[in-house]
Design a protein around this nucleic acid. Structure first.
Lengths: 297, 297
DNA sequence: TGCGTCCATAACCTGGCGGAATGGATGTCG
DNA sequence: CGACATCCATTCCGCCAGGTTATGGACGCA
């Protein structure tokens, strides 16, 4: 008998969330759609997988059996998918490069150009990742190499080469009182609301909130954003201010947002990262070499 | 990304057969349908999996990567499916009993009745299997216990308890010259065409062709059948004769087919089989007990 | 040059899926 | 005690995916 992995994912979500409604919003589908998926799975298996109650759905005996195995099956499929895609990249002479928004900024096109020079016939496929994906897909195997701001969560399990550092500045709404100033002491920002990255980015978020330079005072978070556009909008709307690499002033210029120098916060470092298993991969090595030549000087 | 296991099975079939056309007939779908499935899989993965040529389809690099992993994934899913169904049977208090057509014949209802008596609230779900499925689904895990004619292929990996033996007779077309006789020497049948079981049943097929009692002479096979209905039709049509258990005369009576005693072939033995892992299962043990009490006692 | 054998494409039909709205059961709270 | 909230189930409808049959096109072979 055959199933779509989507059905299994739905099943796992309902089992984990303990109810259709919650699982449905986690999966971004409507509740009736998910209800039907579960019913379909049950009817194909010929057995109920959940007992329905007012409070939600709990697994039956057969449901528990399936719930034990399904995550492993899905992980196996996802792994096979990654491996196949990786092979596809190699076959098409494509190096998949992930980068966090604002990671390498001006250096990026030079790195790509240098890679094209060093590896004729190859192409670097640049994939921008949201901030909630701190390794830009490298940890999940979606890319071969990634350009990131250091430090980032999961760094220990990867190889990282630091490329360069640049000072940090502060981005404010154009109408902000401090926007008139040429440069700002960070302590003047302690009580300002900040536009922060999603919570799951952990140390990365803390680094951009400069938690270490606040003398232990709590951070006021005025907005949480996941992408540069949202980030810029939030700042322009006055929901908060935010630290940014100096290059953002050129790279993310936007009416209503100004960048000012800031004293009292350390610089931001940019690095290139790759998986341990790719240490010997000649294409990955070449790309890292290009990064060091161009960005690391 | 999600995929239906059906797509993976199709992919594996095409990879193994080396072409869409052959794979399509193996999978009992039309060739265009299969072509579309493969194209869909390729487009979802974003890479060609096969190189097309006049002679058929051969795997690309990414195709080989996927082809290495797909069978394991499918096996994993099938195993999870079996386990879930097994749990479903237990939860519903159903013992799944497979039986080869003509296995226990008259004994079957008595066994089921005895099981119902010994296990109130439980139900024996009887599933007749075709002869090409020599363990009646036991080897594949589709049933918990099976009633079979001995010997059968795969017997060594299972537990088997012999229940009883009965003489074998011969089934002939009513118009056959030997049908007028009361009983027949098996050597008189040496040159008759036989209706045989499918080749994959190995020793089981040989046993019903009585290969061992032919003094090394080759068997003439007049027809191959997989089910009692086909078997009876083939005999009635005169495509061949066949050995059968004596009880078939009562159980599979049909106009145009007669059963006659035959001398010179051994009896047929009936057994109940279960998986090694179920040795301690109380329900399976009870069922086996019932078989022995009713059939073997 | 016609034929057989592949795979790809076209045209058509049907079943199933997803979404919005609604129903029904059941606690909760003022 | 009645209004409300919160679940899951159901209905209706539009749409797409998948299947089948028929046909096209490339290529080797006699």
């Amino acid at each position: 008998m055959d199933v779509d992995t989507r059905l299994l994912r739905s099943f796992v979500a309902v089992a984990e969330e303990g109810g259709v409604t919650r699982a449905a919003e986690r999966l971004f589908v409507s509740q009736p759609a998910l209800t039907k998926q579960i019913k379909q799975l049950e009817s194909r298996l010929g057995t109920p997988l959940f007992t329905r109650s007012r409070a939600g759905m709990t697994l039956t005996g057969p449901g528990r059996v399936l719930a034990e195995r399904a995550p492993g099956l899905l992980a196996g499929w996802d792994a096979a998918l990654r491996e196949t895609r990786r092979a596809a990249g190699r076959a098409a002479r494509v190096l998949r490069v992930g980068f966090l928004a604002s990671a390498a900024n001006e250096a990026t096109p030079r790195i790509v150009a240098e890679f094209a020079r060093r590896r004729p016939g190859w192409r670097a496929d640049m994939r921008q990742a949201a901030w909630s994906n701190p390794t830009a897909g490298l940890a999940a195997g979606d890319v071969d190499v990634a350009l990131l701001r250091l430090p980032f969560p999961g760094q220990e399990a990867l190889r990282v080469e630091e490329l360069f550092a640049e000072p940090r500045c502060v981005a404010l709404a154009a109408g902000h009182p401090l926007a008139a100033r040429e440069s700002i002491d960070f302590r003047e920002l302690w009580d300002e609301p900040f536009v922060a990255a999603p919570a799951e980015t952990g140390p990365w978020r803390d680094h951009w909130l400069a938690v270490d330079e606040r003398d232990g005072r709590a951070v006021r978070v005025g907005a949480v954003t996941d992408q540069p556009d949202e980030w810029l909008s939030a700042i322009a709307n006055g929901y908060g201010v935010a630290l940014a690499p100096a290059s953002a002033a050129r790279f993310y210029a936007r009416p209503g947002v100004v960048y000012r120098a800031v004293r009292g916060v350390g610089p931001s470092r940019v690095g290139v990262a790759w998986a341990v298993g790719d240490d010997a991969d000649p294409v990955v090595r070449d790309f890292v070499r290009c990064c060091l030549d161009v960005g690391g000087g």
